[in-house]
Design a protein around this nucleic acid. Structure first.
Lengths: 193, 193
DNA sequence: ATGATTTCTTGATTGAAATCAAGGGACCTG
DNA sequence: CAGGTCCCTTGATTTCAATCAAGAAATCAT
């Protein structure tokens, strides 16, 4: 049990007893998804919360011209969800897609509500993990409009070197908010320093 | 009690009994802050969570050139905090400042942790409210790099007309990620339609 | 393997927002 | 209410990233 990715992730953030995990684990179900498959699309209601055992997912936004912006990438030990939609049964404006063949733990609404109301360390884990996400989003929102393309790429290179190697560059460009051409030129310039 | 802004806000999101509120209310303390006063600055550790009874606050990010980007504005019934810093006693990179003379309810770390571990409806309120914030941040992050200045302003005008009237325009510009000059030109153009 | 599709790079050009500059107006503050 | 600061607008110019275009490289499917 101690080698479970899920338990390791809980313990990264809070104290989590074996007995709590024994209550929690059966609430999850494992699924396989293929590369490019969508877990939900804009307009859908999100019915699950996902934990990545293996693979890589992106959440993204599309505008009326069909252009895409990636909100985040998540890999092993990451959570993907749209809880406003999930908890209120309302459609979401965002999309969630696998970028690699992936293996996910899923939990449905009934089980998630049970867990968050009956398994105290899960509740606390969830609150703290959400705050981490929240803080990162706030910083990135500021950076998105204040940084130059070169600064954005340099930051990504420093903060997420493994992600950079794992992802196609056009997806990175859609995350950093620039065209693939601009990213290519920035990389050329940085590389020569 | 039913006319308390705080209780009304809880009841907007979850069921909240009078008796729960009686336990919760004494954990808060009211303070007054003057216009332009900072609640915390980049490098500080955030020691409080704030609920706005009256007034207006902004959270913002500064870069090395001294340029600012506003992450959000909050008015009456809004919460301001930096929980990663608050819970882990680590410095934050963000700033929180009053834009008007304001009246705030504050809760300290000890009391907040008591509330979130002992007052179940507060916990659930908190989780749901955080998710709303989270969802808004994700959408805005995507929009920040995909929308034109004109689209950003139009969205703000439609979604936050009261905020627009309440705030100086250079603060709105720092929120929408454009210069005051550009905002001025966009407004001139839109106004004539 | 091989052809087809997608992705990445590079170059030329365009265009939109930033910057620079300055005048008028609003609002504190004593 | 008078002076000074800050804010907003408008104009002229510059700059940087987007767009348009095309060829090379990599990946995928059969």
């Amino acid at each position: 049990m101690n080698d479970s990715l899920l338990l390791t992730e809980f313990r990264r953030v809070v104290e989590f007893m074996d007995q709590d995990f024994l209550k929690l684990a059966p609430l999850f179900e494992k699924i396989q998804v293929k590369k490019n498959e969508h877990l939900f699309k804009a307009g859908d209601i999100s019915r699950k919360v996902y934990f990545i055992e293996k693979g890589c997912l992106r959440q993204y936004l599309t505008n009326s011209n069909g252009e895409e912006r990636n909100i985040y990438f998540k890999v092993e030990s990451g959570w993907c969800s749209e809880l406003v939609s999930f908890l209120n049964n309302t459609p979401t404006d965002l999309n969630l897609q696998a970028l690699e063949d992936s293996e996910l733990w899923t939990i449905n609404q009934k089980n998630w509500i049970y867990a968050v109301t009956h398994i105290a360390p899960f509740t606390m884990y969830f609150i703290k993990a959400q705050q981490e996400t929240n803080y990162k989003l706030k910083k990135r929102l500021g950076e998105a409009t204040i940084e130059t393309p070169e600064e954005k790429y340099t930051r990504f290179l420093e903060e997420e070197p493994r992600l950079l190697m794992r992802l196609p560059l056009f997806q990175v460009a859609a995350y950093l908010g620039m065209t693939p051409e601009t990213l290519s030129r920035v990389r050329k310039k940085i590389g020569s320093k």
